[in-house]
Amino acid sequence: MEHMKGCHLKRFFPALAWGVSCIFFLLVILFICYEYIDYRSLCNIGVVDDGIDELHTTLLSVGAGALACLFVIACVGLVGALRSLKVRPLKTEPVDAASVHSDLDAALQDLQIDKSGRCLVYRQVVISLSPRVTLFLDVLVRKENHVLSPEELNGLFYEGYYDGTESGHSRVRNIKYKVHIALQDTPFDVVRDASGNLCLVLKS
């Protein structure tokens, strides 16, 4: 879900641009129509010569027609952009869980968490960590299934770190984000599964 949010935001901008264009062209067309009505009233009382009247009428008609065409194009673009926002279900292929877990364990052989030095070492890459991220990764890497539930964070950090409230959820999202940043130069990442657990995975 968190990954989809970023994708949807980026896909929203074309629809917004087309929508603004539609509104702009519509307002300009309405303004021209209003001015044309006022202009015709001046012509009717003889303020404007007939020759100038015909020229102005032609220019206004051409301008309004061009803007109407642009308005239609913008509407078509808006409809297309809105259709592209629809979320299509992804086709999933069966995954061998044992194979995935084996690949993760093999890759973890090159990863070390230095608790005393508060850093992560992956091959030749050394990344400084905060004390909380160091503790989190140390426990997550050493766990057999490399999964931590939000409730386990209470024993890992302090009681009440995750209490089911919005503040608790926010703290879990915060630690996940910090770990994600710490792992960005490695092939690992931390994601949340369907149950909300924090899982160490290999980047696809």
Rank of each mutant, 00 (worst) to 15 (best):
K5H: 13
C7W: 07
H8M: 10
L9P: 03
K10S: 10
K10Y: 08
F12T: 12
P14W: 03
A15G: 12
G19M: 05
V20A: 07
S21D: 09
S21G: 03
C22V: 02
L26Q: 15
L27C: 12
L27F: 02
F31T: 15
F31C: 15
I32R: 02
I32M: 08
Y34C: 06
Y34L: 09
E35P: 02
Y36V: 12
Y39I: 07
R40C: 15
I45S: 15
D49S: 14
D50M: 09
G51D: 08
I52Q: 15
I52M: 14
L55S: 11
H56A: 14
L59I: 10
L59P: 00
L60K: 07
L60G: 12
S61M: 07
V62Y: 03
A64N: 12
A68G: 13
I73M: 02
A74P: 01
G77C: 08
G80H: 10
G80F: 13
L82F: 01
L82M: 01
R83W: 03
R83K: 12
R83Q: 14
S84N: 06
L85M: 15
R88Y: 08
L90T: 09
K91L: 11
T92H: 02
D96W: 03
A98K: 05
V100N: 01
S102I: 00
S102F: 03
S102H: 07
D103R: 15
L104Q: 09
D105C: 14
L108A: 10
L108E: 05
Q109N: 12
Q109R: 15
Q112H: 05
I113W: 10
D114Y: 03
D114A: 01
D114R: 01
K115M: 11
K115A: 11
S116I: 14
S116K: 14
S116Y: 11
G117E: 11
R118G: 08
Q124R: 12
V126S: 09
V126R: 14
I127P: 07
P131A: 06
L135T: 10
L135S: 09
D138G: 13
L140D: 11
V141R: 15
V141K: 11
R142Q: 13
K143S: 12
N145A: 06
S149M: 06
P150D: 15
E151W: 11
E151T: 06
L153E: 08
N154Y: 05
G155K: 09
Y158H: 12
D163K: 00
G164A: 04
G164Y: 02
E166D: 14
S167H: 04
S167I: 14
R173W: 06
H180T: 06
I181S: 09
I181N: 13
A182M: 04
A182N: 03
L183H: 10
Q184T: 13
D185P: 02
D189I: 06
D189V: 05
A194F: 08
N197P: 08
S204C: 08
S204E: 11
